[in-house]
């Protein structure tokens, strides 16, 4: 057997999103510097997604090139553009960035987190301070999570008391519990918690993932289809067991 060259994993990571609203060469650089000064460590080499969806007016090719150049000079790592007009897409690709569709409205339940909030978490005083135990209450969802919807429990567990449809996605930094049929995708420990687990009353998932490792539907069909089950990580492989 040939040696395995790679393994593919799905993952979610934090990136800074810049919602570009207006543009002026001078103001842009000055304002960016100012922003970065509020939390230099946080912004240092931070992956950046440029969101053009809410830009007022028409952004020119050269302007976009300039914006990306300034971001790079200031130490950010632009990785993608979101919501670029068809005309701008070639420029986006020419800049070596991925072109993503405008923010999917599907994540309707999860308001985009303002960068400001993240900045706060990494303010030096806070990182040095004695880490107080933060207990966040679990996020509880009582209605079905429908196809195309996404629910994310940030910094806590997620409890869904209804079905998670095929085509729906539930994510949590902690554990996920689903008390209806789990037919969509469940991703626990998305920020890397390898102790996170997925529990469900009726396993019919498209995908179950823990800390980036995942099992697909075909495997689940063999192991515990339509049964109450839980999934946890052992080393680098996900174990799925009937409860």
């Amino acid at each position: 057997m040939a040696k395995v060259c790679f393994q593919m994993k799905g993952t979610a990571f934090t990136a800074v999103v810049m919602d570009l609203q207006a543009y002026s060469a001078d103001l842009f650089r000055a304002q960016l510097k100012q922003k970065i000064d509020t939390a230099p460590q946080f912004f240092n080499a931070s992956p950046l997604v440029l969101n053009l969806a809410s830009f007022e007016g028409q952004l020119e090719d050269e302007q976009l090139e300039h914006i990306v150049a300034v971001c790079r000079e200031e130490g950010l790592q632009p990785i993608a553009c979101r919501g670029a007009t068809p005309e701008l897409r070639y420029t986006v690709m020419g800049l070596g960035l991925a072109s993503l569709p405008a923010a999917k409205t599907r994540s309707s339940e999860i308001p985009a987190e303002p960068v400001q909030a993240k900045v706060k978490q990494v303010e030096p005083e806070q990182t040095v301070a004695e880490p107080a135990p933060v207990v966040r209450p679990s996020k509880v969802i009582t209605k079905p999570v429908r196809s195309g919807q996404q629910v994310y429990a940030e910094g806590c567990d997620l409890i869904v008391m209804a079905a998670v449809s095929e085509g729906a996605e539930v994510l949590a930094d902690g554990h996920i519990h689903v008390y209806g049929p789990l037919r969509g995708r469940a991703l626990a420990g998305v920020k890397g918690d390898t102790n996170a687990r997925v529990f469900c009353r009726q396993m019919e998932a498209e995908l179950v993932s823990i800390a980036g490792y995942f099992v697909m539907n075909e495997k689940l069909r063999e192991l515990c289809w339509k049964e109450p089950a839980h999934a946890f990580l052992e080393g680098e492989s996900i174990q799925v067991a009937v409860i």
Partner: peptide, 14 residues
Amino acid sequence: VRDSDRIIGILQSK
């Protein structure tokens, strides 16, 4: 059925 599921999601969010 899948499309109906989607539209119900939209009904209950938008």
